[in-house]
Design a binder for these strands. Structure first.
Lengths: 206, 206
DNA sequence: GTTTTATCTTGACACTGTCAATATTGCATT
DNA sequence: AATGCAATATTGACAGTGTCAAGATAAAAC
């Protein structure tokens, strides 16, 4: 017990655990998270966390939920800059998406990885935050189709899956250190943006 | 020297372990693989596997290596159908890539997931099989650019990263059960193909 | 036949998540 | 203020895990 407060009840253990766990995951990765060690660092016993999170998966879900709501507001901020031209906004969104993943690789891995999504392991609370985030991707896609940035002939949902899939894939390749190299992030983003906006682009002179 | 498997009179524990592990991973996933249980099933002691694989990660790398060489030959087979029009081949490649991922989700997860790639955990032997596989993606991209299927203005490597990223992303979204639904695989593939080949498509106006 | 080498075994260590039973406290109601 | 209940925290225990060290055994090399 390194903490001076030796009270039997911690007071706000849930918040303390969540914050410590978030920090630990961000720094050392999902696999490094141990409930026991976490409890010890918080100055409580090994099983104390179980009164605030059903199991380890629930804790991870809670961490991811924070990440989702954070990213969701960020995405809205970018998208809602109505004074910026759609093309620039679209490009900026791509850069910021990949940038977020590159800057918070462990959090991204947690949010969009199999750890919390396989076998329907995701908490109800997580789904309630994540699904609107997914839905937002469709709304944006619809808008970009309407403004002629993306081909309008395709179904918006399908289109959203593909465009998001691209961003997701690039992010994963970067994070997992496969094939793609961090030093060319911007070029890759621009390449993706150009590919998407083939039709929308005015014919280049040079 | 490095060919530890080539023995005349020895038992074939290495092969037995590799096969059993591959089967287990394919069926129940990476996390379900336990070296101890694997050894027990093979009728040897818990630490016997360590004489054939440095650690668990090395075993996983070996499994993934098999998957890579398998996929690599498959990709070449599709690409080398010179009697099929490039457009059809390109489309077929996309469908088969996603199809492979959808049919072998656990293997795909292992091959292209962080488990073996993060922290440079990949074995040298794995890299020797995987890197040519990545490189092939660039060669195909170059070809598609030359045939006018993909925009030729972009750097081939960058282009390959984006196109592969798209396939990878769609595959991951499918496998992890995020957002994308298995029942629309074909539509998603076609949507991606159409998006990539905007330029190759017959011009609608202008 | 003897030595070297590859392979396998037992024992042990330090972890992990999680359940069960128990103890302590804070808060609401009387 | 006293009491009862629900929330919270604790110790003990169980069944796992990967992996190292040291010793045993069989096969191969000499």
């Amino acid at each position: 017990m390194t903490n001076a407060a030796q009270t039997y009840h911690h007071g706000d253990l849930r918040t303390a655990l969540l914050e410590a766990a978030t920090k630990r995951v961000a720094e050392f990765g999902i696999d490094s998270l141990s409930l026991r060690k976490l409890a010890e660092d918080a100055g409580v016993s090994r099983t104390a966390p179980y009164h605030h999170f059903k199991d380890k998966s629930a804790l991870l879900s809670a961490i991811a939920a924070k990440g989702f709501s954070q990213w969701h507001t960020n995405a809205k901020r970018i998208f809602d800059q109505h004074d910026v031209a759609p093309q620039s906004r679209f490009r900026q969104f791509i850069h910021e998406y990949i940038g977020y993943a590159a800057d918070n690789p462990q959090m991204y891995e947690l949010m969009f990885g199999r750890t919390i999504w396989h076998d329907n392991a995701a908490t109800q609370g997580l789904k309630e935050v994540a699904y609107p985030c997914f839905q937002f991707q469709v709304e944006m896609t619809k808008y970009w189709q309407q403004t002629g940035l993306l081909p309008a002939g395709q179904d918006a949902l399908r289109m959203a899956q593909v465009t998001w899939g691209t961003l997701h894939g690039i992010a994963r390749l970067l994070i997992d250190g496969i094939y793609a190299d961090r030093s060319h992030i911007d070029e890759m983003c621009d390449c993706a943006a150009d590919l998407f906006m083939q039709i929308a682009l005015p014919p280049k002179s040079n």
